[in-house]
Design a binder for these strands. Structure first.
Lengths: 168, 168
DNA sequence: GCGCAAAGGTTATATAGTAACATAGCGCAC
DNA sequence: GTGCGCTATGTTACTATATAACCTTTGCGC
């Protein structure tokens, strides 16, 4: 299985993937839920890089990895499972999905999304979540989910990126 | 034109609408852009209540208000214009659009979205935007847009709303 | 009036997501 | 081991959301 390198910075991404898959296995085991082959494969594909993947892209990748050709419901069911278990997040602004680097700990879905390289980085800032929670509670609102999606240019792309948004 | 009342609290919504439309007219005038009949009508429909409206719902409303029957591109172009001018916001998690109560002032798209009554309330908390900006900048990120979508139950719905999400 | 640019109309199609029902795998009582 | 029941996956068809491409109309300066 080919490792698409992280486009905008250099790190040991194999490590990312392995960690993620291992955590996923542990979590599912401890929760008594089944991380089936399909679900694992989808999670693995999502972790190939740090770019959110659309459900249909994922379908193509599954077809190319050829092991199977799946229809939309199959992919969506796997994604639903992974979402429920907190192993992935949905990026609404992109209609796409990305792996969660710390699925065990309760946290919000806060992302920086580069429009140039397409990478989405999850923020780990509990106090930001607290702040948002506080503002909502002040308004008498009962929070069930937070989705913060900040769009712009990442540190690597900002210098060389001009105007248009092209994901490469 | 019928005024759908705000479901979860009582206020003079006619006032909301009139203010919004008047600001829109002023803004477009001062910017030298054209707030055409169609665009105005779409904006007016969006302001009928405080629930985000989908593009296709909007199409039906236009058809019923009968003045015209429009195809998707027509609606989307009007929506694009209104988005560009900052007169409406897009709620990604709902694939829907809602009026902006203060289109003149630069601000972010921060919403509390009630899953029970469907109402979305825009937060006006500049310091929250600043905080998010600061976090992003610390990560070397150049922010172009913020989208904060907090889902849950509003003050009016929380007491009587049990588990499921039904929009009424 | 003429010509340009912007707005809107029309057709077709791309992309994203779901409903409903059939089949397969797996654990367990017996 | 057989049969039952539950969960996961396969399959077909469809709904919902959004855009491409091209054409016609309108507003407006000259």
């Amino acid at each position: 299985m080919e490792h698409t390198p992280l486009a905008c910075s250099h790190h040991d991404h194999g490590h990312c993937i392995n960690d993620a898959l291992e955590s996923a296995r542990q979590l599912c085991l401890s929760r008594g839920v089944r991380l089936t082959d399909l679900r694992l494969q989808v999670l693995e594909l999502i972790w190939q890089n740090h770019k959110p993947l659309g459900a249909y892209t994922l379908m193509e990748m599954l077809a190319k990895a050829n092991t199977r050709r799946v229809a939309p419901p199959t992919v969506y069911r796997a994604l639903d499972f992974l979402l429920e278990q907190g192993l992935i997040h949905r990026i609404n602004v992109l209609n796409a999905f990305i792996g969660c680097p710390s699925p065990g700990t309760k946290h919000q879905s806060h992302f920086l999304i580069c429009r140039h390289c397409g990478i989405a980085v999850e923020l780990d800032q509990p106090q930001l979540g607290e702040q948002i929670l506080a503002v909502a509670q002040d308004a008498g609102f009962t929070v069930e989910a937070q989705a913060l999606e900040v769009s712009g240019l990442c540190a690597n792309c900002a210098p060389r990126a001009a105007e248009p948004n092209r994901h490469g």
